[in-house]
Amino acid sequence: MVKIEIDEDACVGCGSCVDDCPNDVYEMDEEKNKTKVVKEDDCMACLSCHEICPAEAMEHKNIHVAKRLYIDRKVSGILKKII
């Protein structure tokens, strides 16, 4: 089962994840002006919400992590030293 955790301190309440998720996993909590997870079981772990969130506020646990063969380890190694 997928488990989604939202870092409420990081979330800026932009609602992008609510608009982007095709399975309506998120809803806006109008009082807090933060996103909230309402249909966790319908998450298919596409992670497009991760790409759209400006605050990197969510974490998906217990998912199939797709291979990332496109990563150039040499370049990543250099970047890690700089950043």
Binding site: P22, C46, L47, S48, H50, E51
Partner: peptide, 10 residues
């Protein structure tokens, strides 16, 4: 195609 993401496509 229904939806594409960096980790899965439906």
């Amino acid at each position: 195609i229904d939806h594409v993401g960096p980790n899965a496509c439906l």
